[in-house]
Amino acid sequence: MPPSIEAQQLTKRYGQFTALSGLDLNIHGTKCVGFLGPNGAGKTTTMKILTGLIRASKGTALINGVDVASDKKTALASCATLIETPEIYPSLTPKEALSMLCEIRGVPRQDRNKRIDDALARVKMSEWADKKVGGFSKGMKQRVNVASTLLSDPEVIILDEPSSGLDPRGMSEVRDIVMSLRDRLVFMSSHLLAEVTEVCQEVALIDHGKLLVYDTIENVTAKFSGGGGAVEVGFAGNVDEQLRARVSKLPGVTSTTKSNDRHLLLKYDTAVLTQDKLLESVAGLKAGAITFSQASGLEDAYLSLIKETL
């Protein structure tokens, strides 16, 4: 049976506030699914219900077909989790903390040391294996937390913003780890759309506690990005209004947005213009364009969907 995560009419209320409102989500098979939504949309609430940290007010959360509320032990038997940024008992070493999880998860004694060593090596924490966690930085603790999800060969992995607290190098390493886990079912929330685009095949987008869309990234992008293409152009100097106006007047360019001092996000009509022609046109302006990269269509789709629900 393929691994699965299911939310059936999942509802969570905190007094008058409804964090989740009848969420239905069925994910089956081995893949990486990004879980997106603005702050307060209900992502972490969903993940906490799926992992038994909180109870649903209504509805059912199932992992591999087992109801988490009524039998958390069985439901999470083959599910590794990383919710928010957990803390580890400060007097324990990473090796001891991971050993505790190995024992809880029934990893055979003869395999434990190897699995712990491998997991710590993957998150580059081997040299800290025998130091007390209490003295670690937030990023180092998060690396150990990521290692904890690799111990027991789980079928399902639930990750709530796994890159949180990590430096750019750490974020890149976590992305590589998640990509290597795509032979399982990975359900990962993130605010980093580029990260989701890079590592996930599918995406579920929620807002106000309701599912807006669940599909492959290609389909979501095609359906909701408003059509056309988008590229980001980097300039050697600052982008001023004059330069932005010149770029806006290029044939086929439908809109320009200054993404920072030296970058412009260009949207263009793919029926009029191809990317290479656009590159030629921008270079032809002799305005100091030095980088040219395809912008994420997911961001466009995200903004379009979230705007619609405001």
Binding site: T51, L53, T74, A75, L76, A77, E87, A97, I104, S148
Partner: peptide, 8 residues
């Protein structure tokens, strides 16, 4: 608790 509770 976030480290220990979401386990089997």
């Amino acid at each position: 608790g976030y480290f220990l509770v979401p386990n089997p």
